[in-house]
């Protein structure tokens, strides 16, 4: 019997899904992304990841900025904060600072992350704030109807680069590695199961985890970052890859024409909360320094 060919019986499947409960992590509102958008993949992957990790909805906070990807919090049944363009990480840092027990996931698109919000990333990374940053990179501004983004490829025509984009796209993975994010991975919206696993791993990581998610913009990019192209381009990390080797990670990150999927880099080092605790410990031992008042 060919299991793959075995028909799916809807009522059985629905029962299974109900029992599984991951749909409880969804909000009531239907996502407003364009049909086919890769961001659905992360929404679904996120719920699967939370289910897999057994996090209860009320202990999870999703923080987003502005943009298509940043609509994410509305579509999950966790605590959510849809903030301002580019300000995802600081807000998420604030949430985490307020309550270490919370699982904090920052979500944004490539414009939100690397254009307006680019200044915040190094600091969240170097401080090793124990949050997860999911960046959905479709290489375009979707919410404003198709302008060039920091990750738009050279030669890409958009409404703001009508004569082709001439700005070198930046390499987010190299940036994050250089910023010392303690977990750096890449996934692809077209591979939802892998994506879900990666989200789960990123959330489980203690420290700042950065997951770069390649996604097409099905509405405004019909030529470059399409499912078709990405399907041909993506690859797995080489066998025997050492995820603790930063230099190797950099090397893989440089291969932009054939993006690798998987965990590029991982390290364990004190989180911001650890540093805070250590500071508190030191403060308790020291005389009160003068100054200020």
């Amino acid at each position: 019997m060919n299991e793959l060919l075995k028909p799916v019986y809807l009522e059985e499947k629905l029962e299974e899904i109900r029992a599984d409960g991951h749909q409880d992590y969804r909000s009531r509102s239907l996502p407003t992304w364009c049909p086919g958008c890769g961001y659905f993949s992360m929404a679904e992957g996120f719920t699967l990841a939370l289910k897999k990790l057994g996090r209860s909805a009320e202990e999870v906070v999703v923080v987003s900025g502005i943009g298509c990807a940043s609509r994410f919090p509305f579509f999950v049944n966790t605590y959510g904060f849809h903030t301002l363009h580019g300000r995802t990480l600081p807000v998420a840092t604030g949430v985490k600072q307020a309550n270490d027990a919370l699982t904090v996931v920052a979500v944004g698109g490539d414009g939100d992350a690397f254009a307006i919000g680019g200044g915040h990333i190094p600091h969240a990374a170097r401080r090793n704030v124990d949050i997860t940053y999911l960046v959905f990179d479709n290489g375009i501004y979707g919410l404003t109807k198709g302008q060039t983004s920091p990750t738009s490829v050279l030669g890409f025509r958009t409404s703001t680069s009508p004569y082709e984009n001439g700005d070198e796209p930046l390499n987010p993975l190299m940036m994050l590695l250089a910023y010392r994010a303690s977990w750096v991975g890449q996934a692809y919206a077209g591979h939802p199961h892998h994506l879900a696993d990666m989200i789960a791993e990123a959330i489980a990581h203690r420290g700042f985890s950065y997951l770069h998610i390649l996604s097409p913009c099905v509405t405004f990019d019909k030529t470059t970052r399409t499912y078709r192209n990405l399907n041909m381009q993506v690859r797995d990390l080489p066998s025997g890859y050492d995820r603790t080797d930063l230099a190797a990670a950099m090397g893989e990150a440089m291969k932009v024409d054939h993006p690798a999927l998987g965990v590029f880099y991982e390290e364990s080092r004190p989180t911001l909360a650890d540093v805070m605790d250590e500071t508190a410990r030191k403060a308790g031992l020291s005389p009160v320094p003068a100054g200020g008042e």
Binding site: L84, P90, V91, G94, V95, Q97, A98, N99, A280
Partner: peptide
């Protein structure tokens, strides 16, 4: 730090207020 509070010097004012509001949201 002596009273269990947390002080963080952020990378700019935008992140300062952002984190403040984030923490405020978190209670």
């Amino acid at each position: 730090p002596r009273r269990g509070g947390r002080m963080l010097q952020t990378e700019d004012e935008i992140s300062a207020i952002a984190a403040t509001i984030g923490a405020g949201y978190a209670g």
